[in-house]
């Protein structure tokens, strides 16, 4: 049974833990919540990505905000406490387009789609095994992860709470 108190993973945050842990990523719109888990060492981590990549010439204020530098940093922090990157299991959700009403929303706004592509690319590069994803669409998502039982759940306004995958499955 999950016992750990859930850590709130805010915009641009990276959290890692060894052993029992729980994470909440609240209200992901165009942002993406990514959880990684190494079943052998029980090291887990989560990141709340906001933008696809860092901007040339702009200082990086917070590594976890950007998929291109944030995802490798999450893996670095996890390997620092014992995880092995080739064993990592991944699940992620978000990258929606919550502004669904109005003229030409599809063409005007695409941060969510770009975030999804950027995170997918990083995951591929790192060679993690992707268990499940829930991206795109028009719904804001809240992702709850309980390492104790391995459940990754996604909650939306329209569809309620559903199990995305089990990290221990």
């Amino acid at each position: 049974m999950p016992t750990a108190t859930a850590v709130m993973v805010g915009m641009g945050d990276i959290h890692v833990a060894k052993g029992d842990a729980a994470y909440n990523c609240l209200g992901l719109g165009s942002c993406i919540g990514l959880v990684l888990f190494d079943p052998t060492t029980q090291v887990s981590g989560m990141i709340h990505v906001m933008l696809p990549e860092t901007f040339p010439g702009r200082p990086v204020d917070k590594v976890g905000k950007y998929a291109d530098v944030g995802v490798p940093e999450l893996v670095r922090q996890m390997t620092a406490i014992g995880a092995v990157s080739s064993r990592l299991l991944a699940a992620y959700a978000g990258g929606a387009q919550v502004f669904k009403f109005g003229a030409g929303v599809e063409s005007k706004l695409d941060v969510g789609a770009r975030n999804t592509i950027a995170v997918t690319e990083q995951i591929k590069k790192l060679g993690c095994k992707v268990l499940a994803t829930d991206t795109g669409g028009n719904c804001g998502r809240t992702v709850s992860v309980t390492i104790g039982d391995g459940n990754v759940r996604v909650r939306t306004v329209n569809n309620g709470d559903k199990l995305l995958c089990n990290l221990r499955g």
Partner: peptide, 12 residues
């Protein structure tokens, strides 16, 4: 453009 969703998703 308009969104109706959870507050955090809209503002982020």
């Amino acid at each position: 453009v308009v969104s109706v969703d959870i507050c955090y998703a809209v503002t982020t």
